[in-house]
Design a protein around this nucleic acid. Sequence first.
DNA 1: GTCTATACACCGATAGAC
DNA 2: GTCTATCGGTGTATAGAC
Lengths: 207, 207
Amino acid sequence: MQPIAPSSREKILETAEVLFAARGFSAVGMREVADRVGLSKSALFHHFASKLELYLAVVERILVDIDARQEAAAQPKSDAFERVWHWIEVTIDTLAENPSHARLLLRTLFEEDDVAPEDEDHLDQLLAKILRRVGQAIQEGIDRGELRPVSIPHTLQSIVGMTVYHFASGPVGEKLFGDEIYSSAQVRQRKEEVFQLLRRGLLVTID
Amino acid sequence: MQPIAPSSREKILETAEVLFAARGFSAVGMREVADRVGLSKSALFHHFASKLELYLAVVERILVDIDARQEAAAQPKSDAFERVWHWIEVTIDTLAENPSHARLLLRTLFEEDDVAPEDEDHLDQLLAKILRRVGQAIQEGIDRGELRPVSIPHTLQSIVGMTVYHFASGPVGEKLFGDEIYSSAQVRQRKEEVFQLLRRGLLVTID
DNA sequence: GTCTATACACCGATAGAC
DNA sequence: GTCTATCGGTGTATAGAC
């Protein structure tokens, strides 16, 4: 299977993803995107009718990727905490593998979207679907008496904070870890630390 | 003690804080700030020689406030976890009281700063000072055998993620909690949820 | 300190040739 | 699909009167 030459559209999306992730919507100009791709601005506007359309396409691409990875990795587990942890592990792998994903996901989560409700709804639904997976696993764990009766929204926020924020944290995070946030050793340790915290924090009985 | 009429400079800082917190550096124009304050653009540039200077002043103001509150609330505790928790509680109160603080703090933490090293250093040191407080408390708890031997940087990231991200989370967070993230009831519950998670997650022995 | 007026670069977006 | 050229608007920042 030979590498396929990426289409213009894909090259644009990849380039824009890096820029938007690093600096956000407003701080990135269409000219800069075009230059990096090696196109003129006009050619760029031929592929994406507006800057907002490009941005939304970039965000959707990331959410679809995260969703697909979780879907692909889904496996029936009898143990509720194992399911929660499996979700987190897959998510951490995804975020660690691509820092731009983490950055842009964090922006999507906390930035005010002054976007037309139509386009926003689609992304909101994708996001909700992603979060629902782990939310349901937690709920089932509680129902079965396996997990403490925590608040689902609060626990979701904690999990997002511990995963997405960590891999999105910029210079501050890099300073804390000596620029090695994404090294395999640090990713492994991140998993271990979060695992221990959540296992003790969520389980009713620790074996 | 009668309320003092805020100076122009203070009014500008307050106004800019709200705008920068909501939309970030690039998405806010000096014209908009000036209009909201009720000044002309030129008058605004008289008080702050550049947009970057205004932004840095806003961020510094927030960091100083957070630092001062923690300093004021500091009290000697024999118990290491109690000290950690006290720090978190004070921080949560500060963030919950002023959503703009949480937003802007999160931006400062994860946004790439293309700022001149001179100005950045000052803010970095303030930030480091704020984080060092809780980092040291955790370290002492570990040394005394009171807390599990967790990684300090990882635990800091988790704590920041659970506090700053939560109160900075925009529409997504509001959706999860029905627009009541900042209500006293939800703030109280946030504290309780984080407290339980960390107490179980960090302490060696749970009484 | 505040204003009006303006400089000038860059923005997103379009027109129209090839 | 890609280009050059250009539009109208806005961005930060400045000059100079009051």
